[in-house]
Design a protein around this nucleic acid. Structure first.
Length: 489
RNA sequence: GGCCCCAUCGUCUAGUCAGGCCUAGGACACCAGGUUUUCAUCCUGGCGACGGGGGUUCAAAUCCCCCUGGGGUCACCA
């Protein structure tokens, strides 16, 4: 009986990709639900592309999503460290040496040029490009001597005859003929090990029991299983998750839209919505419920329920989910989330918001059901921050106002009436009184409301008019109506 | 092209493993109504799919085969 141990092994070579987030989420939930251990290992074998910033971004991003790891790099640590592959090269080298001594790996001295020529020739002959085994049967004594003499070489894995079959936890039986598998490179010229080699070494060393990863890794699996065997270890259970697809139905990439977690955060998608949506990529709760919490996901997740076919990333549904999440937030909580967006837009500073918290929350409350992303908020409330005599009029708002023949007189009469009313009157009472004012004069609602809305906010639609008046205050309201009488003439 | 994977509304999916309860359910999008001072929310309704062909069976979206279509992968990247 082995312990349940899963891992996520991102390579720190750029932004935090949504695919990584989804894979991490599924692995994490699997471990969480079954009392297993979730390991985070940094796959920085590509020295030229790996960066510390990227690693930091990954750690931060996963934590932000609500994912925590039991073992990992840095302070987290754990009994199977280190958790950064670049710090494990000694073990990799030793493992490679062992395989070389046992003849499972062999030195290959073929130059890059020869390999390139070989591939080109094969392509020309319509053959499948693959290593021709040129150095496969060289005498080990000779190759050792050549290596000792300083000749450069790579280490290749000697793929045996036969076939490999395994039971994928998502897809079922998958079988590969070894004849289709190249004698792949385990250790590069210069001694740096490759991904396929280290990933297995480390998964063995860290006693990983289940490997859930994207479908693009499916074809690597037989190579890795062979390596597990060579290393004298049982292969873990594999589960290949369906790919996240772009609108073009191809693997989600920068071409098909934003792929970085940071892009969505910056665009103002709430954390819960991002997590929720990611869960929906290849998994469903019950076919009825689309909106659920991370806890619910953990309680219900099983690798066996994962979809086999790729999932197109539907940005429209994502936006809706975002809006739905926003609508379910508390006004206060939403206000907190909006602060950085308001600051960035230059509308108010955090201090100013703090000083007028009550007013700000009323401002937020009126937009809660009108925005789908946090980032939409500033532009929607910007009229409240404009000068009273130069509010930006939307063409449609202005056009609607000009349809009202008596707009100027109506506005003037309403302003006069409004000036005589108590300033602390609530929005609801003022609204009722205003409607009575209109009907008493034998007018229709739009005769006043359309020009009034235009004068106040310049927008064709939006929150309750009397909420606007309340937010603006009596003086600004009257000033804007005054300006409106001139500008709508 | 070889190999591997996949195939239910435009999209995400339930149903497929244990064939009948499916004249295929939900959600997004879209369309039409209703509510509302406008916009939005919300409510109601509509549109809309088992890729094709063979089998097996009393019965197939569900099992088998072929075809077609889509994707992934073919690095001294991960």
């Amino acid at each position: 009986m082995t312990d349940l141990r899963v891992r996520i092994a991102p390579s720190p070579t750029g932004t935090v990709h949504l695919g990584l987030c989804r894979t991490a989420l599924f692995n994490w939930a699997y471990a969480k639900k079954r009392g297993g251990t979730f390991v985070l290992r940094i796959e920085d074998t590509d020295k030229t592309r790996s960066t510390g910033e990227s690693e930091a971004a990954i750690l931060k991003g996963l934590a932000w999503l609500g994912i925590d790891w039991d073992e990992g790099p840095g302070e987290t640590g754990g009994p199977y460290g280190p958790y950064r592959q670049s710090e494990r090269v000694d073990r990799h080298t030793a493992a490679a040496q062992g395989l070389l001594e046992r003849g499972i790996a062999y030195r290959c001295f073929c130059s890059t040029e020869r390999l390139t020529e070989l591939r080109e020739a094969q392509e020309k002959a319509k053959q499948n490009p693959r290593y021709d085994g040129h150095c496969r049967d060289l005498d080990p004594k000779d190759t050792a001597a050549r290596a000792a003499a300083g000749e450069e070489y790579v280490l290749r894995f000697r793929v045996p005859e036969g076939s490999t079959e395994f039971e994928d936890l998502v897809r079922g039986k998958v079988k590969f003929e070894h004849a289709e598998i190249d004698d792949w490179v385990m250790v590069r010229r210069g001694g740096a090990p490759t991904y396929n080699f280290v990933v297995v070494c480390d998964d063995v060393a860290m006693k990983i029991s289940h490997v859930f990863r994207g479908e693009e890794h499916l074809v690597n699996t037989p190579k890795q299983i062979l390596l597990y065997k060579a290393l004298g270890d049982d292969a873990p259970r594999f589960g290949h998750l369906p790919l996240m697809l772009g609108k073009d139905r191809k693997k989600l990439s920068k071409r098909s839209g934003d792929t970085a977690l940071g892009d969505y955060v910056a665009n103002g998608y709430p954390r819960e919505a991002i997590v929720n949506f990611l869960c929906l990529q290849g998994w469903a709760l019950d076919g009825e419920t689309d909106v659920f919490s991370l806890d619910t996901f953990v309680e219900n997740f099983d690798i066996a329920d994962v979809q086999k076919a790729g999932a197109v990333f539907d940005i429209d549904k994502f936006r809706w989910l975002s809006g739905d999440t926003i609508r379910r937030m508390s006004v206060s909580g939403l206000a907190d989330e909006l602060v950085p967006f308001v600051e960035k837009a230059g509308l108010m500073t955090a201090d100013e918001i703090h000083g007028r918290r009550g007013w700000f929350e009323r401002l937020v409350a009126g937009e809660q059901e009108r925005i789908e992303l946090f980032s939409e908020f500033p532009a929607r409330v910007s009229p409240f921050f404009e000068a009273d005599d130069s509010v930006t009029y939307d063409p449609k708002a202005e056009k609607n106002s000009r349809k009202q023949e008596a707009r100027l007189e109506t506005l003037a009469a309403y302003a006069e009436w409004l000036a005589g009313r108590p300033e602390d009157e609530g929005a609801e009472a003022l609204g009722a009184a205003s409607k009575a004012w209109i009907t008493d004069r034998g007018m229709k609602i739009p005769a006043l409301f359309q020009p009034l809305r235009c004068a106040l906010t310049g927008q064709p639609g939006g929150r309750d008019l009397f909420d606007c008046i309340s937010l603006l205050g009596r003086a600004a309201t009257l000033a804007r109506i005054g300006a409106g009488i001139e500008r709508l003439a």
